[in-house]
Design a protein around this nucleic acid. Structure first.
Length: 886
RNA sequence: AGGCGCGUAGCUCAGGGGGAGAGCGCUACCUUGACACGGUAGAGGUCACGAGUUCAAAUCUCGUCGUGCCUACCA
């Protein structure tokens, strides 16, 4: 690498791929199972194989990458475990749709062939997301990439299943589950999305059997009445007490069904009479169990009415609703119809309305697992950050219900259970059994169903590390240091990993869980393809570069608030990348002949003021960046660096350095400054590398006296010895004076070509001395021809004036001054001061304030008042004088 | 129905009991030997509204309105 001049503008396209390939070639992302360095590990939230990178991925993985690069530079042995998820239903749907385009149905293809096709499809298209993660700069240890359907992970899944089964924590049974009539599978409660829906509440008359009158039942789903096996009332409901032991005649079906009494029924809802359909409603199912009612399934798996529905057989469930209403109306059994708003469950994959259906499925008894998971967070073994998510986590865990894990699809881990066709024995085993352990029969039939995708994801932190084998990877890297994810999968994934990790590893899967915001569009809506409001990260990367995107995402990553992304903001941060680039360009031009021996740290005493100042500032920044990153405050770290690089390093330090580098100063002085310049740039690059890896590597490679990749450099450490309050306050004085002069220039529209003289007056000799010592800096940056100092009040004629601290700055403008403008300017300033002064004054006449406020606050306000009064007097004097001249 | 969060400059958002901030946009001036993806200066805010706590509230508490999300078996 040479340190020739950089291009005038940073072009990410020329840089990004080259350095990523280099990092991979040099194995810089590789974790070491045997290192005795401190471990730091993260498992990636595995994206779906079907997926393409969206902003959520970009955000999530940027944050992970920042931490991984940061910890590596701090000397940790970092493992970032990558991989993808087979995403059962989603993937199956995608491939099914592809096949449909070819006119092929999966059933004609058959199970084995169909699964083969999915594997083929995965090989061909499933790698897209990995490539895209690489474009993002993700420093995963790619040699360890895992897939939830890999041999090893599948073995983990089977092992877990078998153990839970043997422990009685997995069972099979007939229960009401959520059924998607389109996907043709059961769903867990989490996979159902509720949505408000305008419907009707139908009041239907159920004639009382062998008596007069009728019970009126309110329902939103009249079609399910065909499967009613009772009507229920609350035992405390006076209105219906007399119906004990009575029955009603179920209309249309003409089935006699009992009136039962159950506490569940809400007296205040509708008529206080509930129709009970155990086969199509979870609550009714419970009631049915309590009262030993029969279940009549009237809606089939395809969403059409079954044999049991009599004349309605074969109708679609929604058609049937209309038909039932019509039939009831005909018989005069509809009492009334009220509009009614209620929420309806939809399949989160295909939006079809979910049908609660009685079905034989496999379940995990999660209560005992959840207790351990609750406890782990309670006792702080795992921290959730930000803490507000604790409550959400606890709430869900406390109210957890058994998890339906069987899915009637083909793509996934097939349930390791077999039925012996000879004796009916159920065999659950890790390895495919050859014969029935009971009757030794060999005619075994494996369960058709596969497991919920999240069942395998729940094992991810340890299955990826080789479990159930006792591997060195597990010993070194489990539990992982932190999990970074969005709250949308807190229950789906985080909670379940907690449960499984604690149960099988006897240890939490992660020390910290950092829950980040969701990326939304400019209106605050969740980005989704169907809404068409996505901002494609790859498009952004092409347009602005990866670093600009990453820095934006980091700067936006505020805890507890969602991100509304806009291209404008990303563009703003591209400018920052370019600013850094150009600052480096300046440095490199001057560092061309920089010698290695100059890189040792110079003693503070011999350093010029600007150098002491920038080193002091740098060390404060280092401290702040480290503490921010340690607390997952990515935005604080990013904006601290932004502020420092742009508004301190570029705006002030480089300007000061120019004086030394461009004037004919002696060589040693130049060397000292170059030394500091090198140091600051060096540390800035290291501090920024985790956020913006590409541009920092590119500059690093051209910076003299660096070896290898910046990835292997040490992350800066704060050095309290470099913090220099005196230098900071002195610089503040100089900046104040420079700003005063600049203000005059700007406000008075003085041509920039015009070199000005200035006179600074102050009664404070110490201040004057300081200014005198550093007048070169002021002269240069404020572009003066000379700067005079005086402790005697003598007013240069026709001057514009500015006040800074105890100083009055005069800029003689004989012949150029616009008196009106100057009067306006001073008056404006004066009214500002007066306004502030009234505020301060009010406080200082307040007895309570003087008595009760902490003394240092009172002192501060007093000091401020004094300063303001001084400023006011000076302004008034200047104003008076200028008015006299006008 | 419960729970959580948000309402601060034109826009996107930081801050979180004692000086209202940033980026973008806007106005004026400027091709100054790193950078016009730049520089300098400037305009712009009853920090949603109402009450309370406090010497002091954008900041804490309560309420109202608006807004977003999550959870839920009231048919």
């Amino acid at each position: 690498m040479d340190s020739d001049t950089l291009d005038k503008a940073y072009d990410p396209k020329k840089v990004e791929k080259r350095w990523y390939d280099y990092w991979e070639r040099e194995h810089l992302f590789a974790a070491n199972d045997y290192s005795n360095k401190k471990p730091f590990s993260i498992v990636i939230p595995p994206p779906n194989v079907t997926g393409v990178l969206h902003m959520g991925h970009a955000h999530n993985n940027t944050l992970q990458d920042i931490l991984c690069r940061y910890r590596r530079m701090q000397g940790y042995n970092v493992l970032w475990m990558p991989g993808t998820d087979h995403a059962g239903i989603a993937t199956q749907n995608v491939v099914e749709n592809r096949l449909a385009e070819e006119g092929i149905d999966r059933h004609t293809l058959g199970r084995e062939k169909f699964i083969e096709r999915i594997w083929e499809w995965r090989e061909k298209y499933g790698r897209a997301i990995i490539k895209q993660l690489k474009r993002l700069g993700a420093s995963c240890d790619w040699d360890r990439e895992r897939f939830t359907m890999d041999e090893g992970l599948s073995r983990a899944v089977r092992t877990v299943f078998v153990r839970l089964y043997n422990e009685g924590l997995i069972y099979r049974g007939d229960y009401i589950i959520n059924w998607c009539t389109r996907c043709q599978t059961a769903l867990s409660d989490l996979e159902v999305e509720h949505e408000e829906h305008e419907g009707n509440l139908y009041y239907v008359r159920y004639p009382i059997d062998n008596g007069s009158g009728a019970l009126i039942v309110a329902t939103t789903r009249p079609e399910t009445m065909l499967g009613d096996t009772a009507v229920a009332v609350n035992p405390n409901d006076e209105r219906y007490r007399h119906l004990k032991g009575k029955s009603v005649l179920l209309p249309l079906v003409n089935r006699v069904i009992p009136v039962i009494f159950d506490e569940y029924v809400d007296v205040d809802f509708g008529t206080g009479v509930l129709k009970v359909t155990p086969a199509h409603d979870p609550n009714d199912f419970e009631i049915g169990n309590r009262h030993k009612l029969a279940s009549v399934k009237v809606i089939g798996e395809d969403g059409r009415m079954t044999e049991e529905a009599g004349v309605f057989k074969g109708m679609d469930r929604f058609e049937c609703r209309e038909a039932v209403i019509k039939a009831l109306e005909k018989e005069g059994l509809i009492e009334k119809v009220e509009p009614y708003q209620h929420s309806i469950g939809h399949c989160h994959r295909c939006r079809t309305i979910v049908e609660p259906n009685l079905s034989r499925q496999w379940f995990v008894k999660v209560k005992p697992l959840a207790e351990k998971a609750i406890d782990a967070v309670k006792r702080g073994a795992t921290r959730i950050i930000p803490e507000t998510w604790n409550n959400v986590y606890f709430d869900w865990m406390y109210n957890i219900k058994d998890w339906c894990i069987s899915r009637q699809i083909w793509w996934g881990h097939r349930i390791p259970a077999w039925t012996c066709k000879t004796c009916g024995e159920l065999i659950v085993a890790v390895k495919d059994p050859a014969e029935c352990p009971g009757c030794k029969g060999t005619d075994l039939e494996q369960e058709e169903d596969v497991l919920d995708t999240w069942f395998s994801s729940a094992l991810w932190p340890f299955s990826t590390m080789g479990w159930p084998d006792d591997t060195q990877t597990l010993r070194t890297f489990y539990p992982t240091s932190v999990l970074i994810t969005g709250f949308d999968i807190l229950f789906f994934w985080v909670a379940r990993m907690m449960m499984m990790g604690l149960h099988f590893m006897k240890e939490v899967p992660f020390r910290d869980v950092y829950i980040h915001a969701l990326i939304r569009d400019s209106e605050g809506k969740k980005m989704s393809k169907s809404k068409g409001n996505v901002i494609d990260p790859l498009h952004i990367i092409d347009k602005f570069g990866t670093d600009a995107l990453r820095f934006t995402l980091a700067a936006f990553a505020v805890q507890g608030r969602d991100i509304r992304l806009s291209e404008n903001r990303i563009e703003g941060y591209r400018h920052f990348i370019n600013k850094l680039w150009n600052a480096a360009r300046f440095c490199l031009i001057h560092l061309r002949e920089f010698k290695a021996e100059g890189t040792t740290k110079t003693d503070k005493k011999v350093l010029p003021l600007p150098d002491r100042w920038i080193l002091s500032r740098l060390n404060r920044v280092v401290e702040k960046v480290i503490s921010s990153l340690d607390e997952y405050k990515f935005n604080d770290a990013a904006s601290t660096l932004y502020q420092f690089v742009w508004h301190e390093f570029c705006d002030w330090y480089i300007e000061c350095v120019k004086i030394v580098l461009y004037e004919k100063e002696d060589k040693t002085k130049k060397q000292i400054t170059l030394n500091v310049l090198w140091h600051i740039l060096h540390d800035i690059l290291c501090l920024l590398h985790p956020f913006i890896p590409f541009v920092t590597e590119e500059i690093w490679q051209r910076l003299p006296n660096t070896k290898g990749s910046i990835m292997k450099a040490d992350f800066p450490v704060a050095d309290q010895g470099r913090v220099d309050n005196e230098a900071e306050s002195t610089m503040k004085i100089l900046m104040g004076i420079i700003n005063g002069i600049r203000n005059i220039r700007g406000e008075m529209n003085i041509p920039p070509g015009l070199v000005l003289k200035a006179v600074v007056y102050s009664e404070d000799r110490n201040i004057l001395e300081i200014i005198n010592r550093y007048k070169g800096i002021i002269i240069h940056i404020a572009r003066l021809s000379s700067l005079e100092l005086t402790s005697v009040e003598k007013y240069p004629e026709a001057s514009a004036t500015a006040i800074s601290g105890s100083c009055t700055i005069f800029v003689p403008l004989k012949g150029i001054i616009n008196f009106e403008e100057e009067i306006k300017r001073l008056s404006k300033e004066l009214s500002k001061v007066n306004k502030e002064l009234t505020g301060v004054g009010k406080k200082l006449v307040n007895e309570d304030f003087l008595k009760k406020a902490p003394p240092e606050i009172v002192e501060k306000v007093r000091g401020k008042q004094k300063m303001l009064v001084e400023k006011k007097n000076k302004l008034e004097a200047n104003l008076e004088r200028i008015q006299g001249l006008a």
